[in-house]
Amino acid sequence: MYLGEASGLPLGAATRDAFGNALKDLGATNDRLVTVDGDVGNSTRTEPFALAYPDRAFNVGIAESNMVSVAGGLAACGKIPVVASFACFLMDNAFDQIRMSVAFPNLNVKLVGSHAGISIGEDGPSQMGIEDVALACSLPGVTVVVPSDAACTIEATKACLELEGPTYLRVGRGKVATVYPDGCPFELGKAITVRDGSDATIIANGLMVPGALDAAKMLEADGISCRVIDLHTIKPIDRDAIAAAAKETGAIVVAEEHLHHGGLGSAVAQVVAETAPVPMGFVNVGDQYAESGDPQGLLDKYGLTAAAVVDAVRQAHGRK
């Protein structure tokens, strides 16, 4: 049972595919767009762009540090470089280059991390990006976006490319449920309320948005009315939406496919603490590395399930 299935959401495209196709389309009208790849374009899906615009696609080999700083140079010359690799190899392997060649000089580089989370499955922990959001959010001036479904990713890709400044976009490997069948009302930095409710709020991003919708449906049967917020932009964060949710519903649970420290949960907790302290709960991978296995089995084993969100909501709600 995939996340979102219990809510009747159909399975849609993987967010990496949505990103890759959007990038290729945008390449037709924007000749400043270039890609810098580290030998994984067929995985990150920058390949369609590279095939369509070979003169604007650079594959520097398995050399992430070089890849990132090359992108910094291109950006300094007015290009809009999209530099994509697995989230772990991009953020973790080239972090100082991202700091010094992108964030500190505030250059217009579009970082894209694919294969985020544990749901990549069988390749195992060495290929899983689960520290990436913490790393990206730590960098001053970098906009950080984690879209939930294909439609949201298309809009997020456009918005990141239109923004003048460094961005980090996180996409996943496998197919995910469709949260926005009629297109996504996406605005950078603006949370989307995908379901309203009055007793508690679930704030989620990525594939935990459909998971949160499943949980809200289950909780409705118990008489707990849940608001569900898709907080796709972690930085800059929508403080108003978080503060309103805290004040109006009195309990908040944050669900994400990331480590416990430094992700969406930490970001939301800071805002809640500063604006309207209420009981909170956190659903995430915890403080541990995962293992190889099938994607669904891993999500179940590491507690990224609607049931885990339901438990967390009950607990936070009970502490009101």
Binding site: D123, G124, P125, S126, Q127, E291, S292, G293, D294, L298
Partner: peptide
């Protein structure tokens, strides 16, 4: 190899 629970992971651990 590569099955959930197996220590013979997709990459050496």
């Amino acid at each position: 190899l590569r099955k959930l629970g197996s220590p013979w992971e997709g990459h050496p651990n």
